[in-house]
Design a protein around this nucleic acid. Structure first.
Lengths: 232, 232
DNA sequence: TGCGCAAACTGGTCTGACCAAGATGAATTC
DNA sequence: GAATTCATCTTGGTCAGACCAGTTTGCGCA
């Protein structure tokens, strides 16, 4: 099957370098061979070597200085700032929140409509548990519980897009959500009453299998949370 | 303090491109100017432009193809893992249609709200063309035409998430959609009148820039198609 | 020994050229 | 009239060789 692996020199170079960095053969601060040397070694033009190197610079794997040698960067740096740095666009953030309100409503709607009895029971159990242990828990625990509740609803919706988006969204923004809840908690001393009440309303609408009502409560809940974030 | 901001053309180019992508000025799939054009516009050599572009490629912001134009990448691609449509079972088709209803509704809403006059005109032209050649075409052709019509609406929505999802969605589920149309065609011998009428209604609502109405007609259209499937 | 400066690096940029693959449109065929 | 074919143009990918502006290096001088 390797009969057709025309691996270009370009790709070889890129893989070699990334691998050397990943394995520690190139430790942070260690100098790379000069571009001219790499070009000779891999039998390619320096222009092409530069494109590869600049690609790695864009990935924060390499640092260059005019006149000085290029060096392996400190990987930790970029990994630490990864979650926040990628989302520089406020416009996109707002769009995501809009979409979330819409889809959360959709999730509740279809959950109320099509959740199996078993799923409804599980959801109820989760809700009761949330009520029981609502005191004396860390913010992190509450955030996780909140997440679980919403994810259960999403998964009970049997709706492809809703499930996919929910997974994406929560995986990506959990930290931000937790941070926001944490700060509001500090400011008010406890979770705003609204959230618990809204959870209750959503839960009742779903258990009553009232789709329209569930949709209404759910999107209202998200918009409420959104307002909290905005004023944070 | 700006006394020492010798912002190199290189950095200007990089920032311009990343910003255009982040703000949605460059939507997924939109072509970039050619490297030669960029080089001329920013008064720099093509080699240098290439280094910048390759950097953005490394960041998954841009996709290049030899011979073809470079395009803005779909940022959601790597973060989404929708189930693969291996078999076009009825259940899957139903789910797909449901997700479509949601997407199309939003797309139509924002299209009516924010489409440029040029886009509205292009949409109108496409609609008229669809009417003209409505007879004697293969199912595949009709499915493609249908797809084009809906994609134009999505792209005219100027809604980054709607566009991204629509692209990913149709790329994955075109077969399923085609299968749905195909089976209804077999059953009725021709496209049900409803579909053409509904396309007309969606089109009129959008041309009238009536968002609510457009959303209603669009999702009603999809749900209609869905009901056709259910009664199989 | 210690300092200073010039030559030898290195990365950053430019020019101009060629190739292969996509995009385009006119001529051709059915 | 519509679909197909094919030549042409455009685009990204690669190359060679050159110059600039910084950094390193090391030799020679004090």
């Amino acid at each position: 099957m390797n009969s057709e692996t025309p691996v270009t020199p370009r790709e070889r170079l890129r893989q070699q370098l990334t691998q050397q960095i990943a394995t520690g053969a190139l430790i942070p601060g260690a100098p790379l061979p000069s571009e001219r040397a790499l070009a000779a070694e891999y039998s390619m033009s320096r222009a092409c070597v530069r494109e590869v190197v600049q690609g790695l610079v864009a990935d924060d794997l390499i640092e260059t200085t005019q006149g000085g040698r290029s060096r392996c960067a400190n990987l930790l740096q970029s990994h630490l700032s990864l979650p926040v740095a990628t989302e520089s666009s406020l416009a996109l953030q707002l769009e995501v929140m809009e979409a979330r309100a819409l889809l959360e409503g959709e999730a509740a709607y279809y959950c109320a409509l099509r959740a199996t009895d078993a799923q409804l029971a599980a959801l109820d159990a989760e809700y009761q548990a949330m009520q029981q242990r609502s005191r004396g828990q860390s913010t992190l625990h509450k955030a996780k519980a909140d997440l679980t509740f919403h994810m259960m609803i999403a998964e009970s919706s049997h709706h492809l897009l809703v499930i996919s988006f929910s997974q994406l969204f929560y995986a990506r923004y959990f930290n931000a959500i937790h941070g926001a809840l944490s700060s509001t908690l500090k400011r008010y001393g406890r979770y705003p009453d609204g959230i618990a009440q809204q959870h209750g309303r959503i839960h009742r609408a779903i258990q009553a299998r009232n789709p329209e009502q569930a949709r209404l409560e759910a999107s209202e809940h998200i918009l409420y949370t959104r307002r909290l974030l905005e004023t944070a």
